[in-house]
Write a protein that binds this DNA or RNA. Structure first.
Lengths: 346, 346
DNA sequence: TAAAACGATGATAGCGCTAACATGGTAGCG
DNA sequence: CGCTACCATGTTAGCGCTATCATCGTTTTA
């Protein structure tokens, strides 16, 4: 063996991927690592020529910054935790869309968590997300488990609780569900309906629907009317709405109007009524909540209350960004207005 | 000053959050940090009593593991990058749902990216996600920019390209769009429609719709028929479908069937036809693609092709997980079957 | 009974990056 | 010319965790 290698008793190295590191970029550019770092992160603090050499080295080596290392060193990731109770519901999807667009434009990455309406799961998710050193948190709802509550109180980063209004942990963007329910009840009374049923779905989980019911009930009570309620054991869908209509017709045959907890249910009932040959609103009036496009395309158009979901997401994101940029927050609580859409279904 | 402090020339410390670290947990439990780490990550490699002491210390201190530090040290995060072209489309939402559920159950966190059908944006997102040391990637579509392609080829982690079938980078889960389009065209011919229009929306971006059109055209050609096509300049929505129907009636008054690129358009047209007093399918037949619940609730029910979206997400996730667990992959390409739903609209 | 195997724990040395401080050069100013 | 101000860059020292190897007693194997 003429070409014997040295015994190589190097202190065994660690795995370490073979990908190029900042150090290598720096060497290739003939600068120190920290200068290379600055050239990439705060370009205007670096001489133009140096910057050029660094970016060139980056290109040439195909360097991709290790964001994990960067986050560890700077003790801050550009993650925003977003926690919603469901992905099956178009409402949350649109909120997420508003969040995503606003945050993405500012270079933040959303970490999406889905609790499936389970507070234990919510706690678990929050623990994990805190572990990722998120810069902020957007969470649906004001009700959390005790452990969760104290975890978040001790966390000194911006938090926005969305969807509903009330006293929360930090910031709050939402709408007044009680008032929305009341609003629709008033409309139904104005139209001279008197036997009005409220139909909800899993209202222990979707407790905002029960807040709307409270508003509804209050208005009917003022008019001296009962406010019977039917609760389905599955979440909103067209099918469930159709089934609900059957239940109402059977249990309360004299009903002249149904106030549904959401548009999916209401639209399902509306289409089902047509299949049954019932006139809407002559035989039965139908109202919903959310203002989904679907309900506005059926004939008759659904009377409903439009909640500005994407806007809510955008506003929530803007609140967080304001905090992160140390800009003043004028209102810790933002009441997004809803809009009553009067269709021909009532 | 009786109580003067020492001059304290400590080597100035770094910011460092005040949150408890593993080291502190270890001290509280009377073990070394590495043992504490093991107690949390690989509990069965630690004595039961030791484990108890560690978990107790964790509880007591309110310790939340710093996942960023862990990922850096172990050179692997439990992130999965998911890249889709749009969040406005229910199809991708359902795919994401399937992915999310499967990955979440195994302790992986999804990083969601939205390209808005922009290949530049896609490349950018991928660079960022690689920087987060993702364990895998799920991406919609087989068409990527050149730079993107080579970036991914050099990346030695599992990749699944979804939605369509074809030769890809690594794994592939999707359906045969050409065949789906052909399938629907055959159905329309079987029903003796002969003046059939295809209506698409932004088919340069939603190029899978144009693959379906290819299949459609081929079948009509075999029957000796023209296959005129109308392309809308906005993506699918109920409103766009209604508008499309008007365009078809104006430009091709003798049309007896419309094959829409998706259910949103088709349902919009169907509802609009009813508003116009047109009989479906007597005056005009309408077919869609996707099999969204919406189309199955209208009367007449929409004839369409059901794509198993959530399943696709689940299968894609399972492929990735199999790779990550070093389990054998039997098929690198998975053809998810579509199902033809014959409604009364054709 | 010696050797090998194993189970539980620890010491050491980074992972790749950036905060904090330090340095040296150039400009501005009276 | 001495002073401060500032710009561009470098040196040092970690961020909080885990891979790797080492240690030491106990158990199994031949």
């Amino acid at each position: 063996m003429s070409n014997m290698e040295a015994p190589s008793s190097e202190p065994r190295k660690r795995r370490g991927s073979d990908k190029p590191t900042l150090k290598q970029v720096a060497e290739a550019a003939g600068v120190s690592p920290i200068t290379a770092s600055r050239a990439l992160n705060t370009p205007d603090r670096v001489n133009k020529e140096t910057r050029r050499r660094v970016t060139e080295a980056v290109e040439q080596l195909g360097y991709v910054p290790n964001l994990i290392a960067g986050s560890l060193a700077s003790a801050s990731s550009r993650f925003i935790a977003v926690i919603v109770p469901s992905l099956a519901n178009a409402v949350f999807i649109e909120v997420i869309k508003g969040l995503q667009e606003t945050f993405e434009a500012k270079g933040y990455q959303i970490l999406l968590g889905n609790t499936d309406y389970d507070l234990q799961r919510e706690h678990q998710l929050i623990r994990t997300f805190l572990g990722w050193s998120c810069s902020g948190l957007v969470i649906a709802g004001l009700r959390h488990s005790k452990a969760c509550q104290s975890l978040l109180e001790a966390w000194n980063k911006p938090i926005v609780e969305i969807m509903e209004l009330g006293k929360g942990l930090d910031l709050n963007v939402g709408l007044d569900h009680r008032e929305a329910g009341a609003c629709m009840a008033r409309h139904l009374l104005d139209r001279h309906y008197r036997s009005i049923i409220y139909v909800g779905a899993c209202m222990d989980r979707d407790y905002r629907a029960s807040m709307r019911y409270e508003g509804h009930k209050e208005i009917l009570a003022k008019a001296g009317l009962e406010a019977p309620m039917i609760e389905l054991d599955r979440l909103g869908s067209l099918e469930a709405g159709a089934a609900a209509l059957d239940m109402v017709l059977e249990q309360y045959p004299r009903t002249d109007a149904i106030h549904f907890a959401n548009d999916d249910l209401a639209t399902g009932a509306l289409l089902h009524a047509q299949r049954l040959g019932l006139g809407v609103p002559q035989d039965i009036a139908i109202a919903g909540f959310n203002g989904l496009p679907l309900g506005q395309q059926v004939t008759p158009r659904l009377t409903t209350i439009h909640s500005p979901r994407e806007t809510m997401g955008r506003l929530a994101a803007e609140q967080i960004l304001r905090r992160l940029n140390d800009e003043p927050i004028t209102e810790k609580q933002v009441n997004v207005a809803f809009r009553t859409l009067i269709g021909e279904s009532t």
